[in-house]
């Protein structure tokens, strides 16, 4: 009989892993669209790619602060990030957009409605991310849940190149446990809430894959300048 551990609610009501994840959250990034450029699809896409590149640097630093991530071998750390980087970016945009109806908050100074998304050729992606936002809004996703789910998305990225599968499984287990523990204390009224949150991950992956495909085609087009880290990760997903 396998040992089945029930989530044990922490007595203080605060899960240590969740607290560490809250502390690891990156600072806000501003988009700062170039005021010298006239508004165009190229300008919008350039602004988004530049913003994504700067967020990626912060997200790599964030990953290193996830309890247990830095204990993985360097190759597995790279594999997880190469698979999940866009999911992390998309989940961050979705969480920032929760207070806004029908708009995506890429940054405080860069909020995009459907009309602007259409002009930038991003309408399909905009709709897909808004579907995710509406799912999280209807659940009233909390910051503690968001940070834990984001770490789970990274640990559960299904890379085909993992060397130490047990170590990655251990990281998934500890983050899963942290989510169960948090829900056990804060959402006793809904014993299925943790499961409901995990069940949003397929839509996150689907949306992220859409975003990667779209930005790959923009890259091939060659009209939008992209920074090296963003290019490197786009190429990792091809």
């Amino acid at each position: 009989q396998p040992h089945r551990k029930q989530p044990s609610c922490s007595t203080l009501g605060e899960n240590k892993v969740v607290t560490l994840l809250l502390g690891a959250e990156p600072e806000k990034v501003c988009a700062m669209p170039d005021p010298a450029l006239p508004d165009s699809d190229i300008k919008a896409l350039t602004t988004l790619c530049d913003l994504a590149d700067r967020e990626l640097v912060l997200n790599i630093s964030w990953a290193k602060n996830i309890p247990g991530f830095s204990s993985l071998c360097l190759s597995d750390q790279m594999s997880l990030l190469q698979s999940a980087w866009m999911e992390i970016l998309v989940l961050r945009v979705a969480f920032r957009s929760l207070p806004c109806e029908d708009k995506l908050v890429f940054a405080d100074d860069y909020i995009m409605d459907a009309e602007q998304a259409k002009s930038a050729g991003l309408l399909e992606l905009h709709k897909a991310i808004l579907q995710l936002v509406s799912r999280y809004r209807s659940m009233r996703l909390e910051k503690e849940e968001f940070v834990t789910l984001k770490a789970i998305a990274l640990a559960n990225s299904d890379s085909m190149h993992i060397e130490d599968v047990e170590a990655v499984q251990g990281l998934q287990d500890s983050l899963h446990e942290a989510l169960l523990d948090y829900e056990c204390v804060h959402h006793r009224e809904d014993p299925r809430r943790a499961g409901k949150l995990i069940m949003t991950l397929p839509l996150l992956r689907q949306t992220s894959a859409k975003a990667v495909r779209h930005f790959c085609s923009i890259k091939q087009d060659g009209r939008v300048p992209m920074h090296k880290l963003f290019l490197e990760l786009l190429e990792a997903n091809v």
């Binding site: 640097v57 790599i60 964030w62 290193k64 190759s75 790279m78 880290l229 490197e232 990760l233 990792a236």
Partner: peptide, 20 residues
């Protein structure tokens, strides 16, 4: 790995958070 130089360098960099 050679193809992923920047990711590799950022992960190896011990200072955290990474300077932009």
């Amino acid at each position: 790995k050679e193809k992923h130089k920047i990711l590799h360098r950022l992960l190896q960099n011990s200072s955290s958070p990474v300077d932009l």
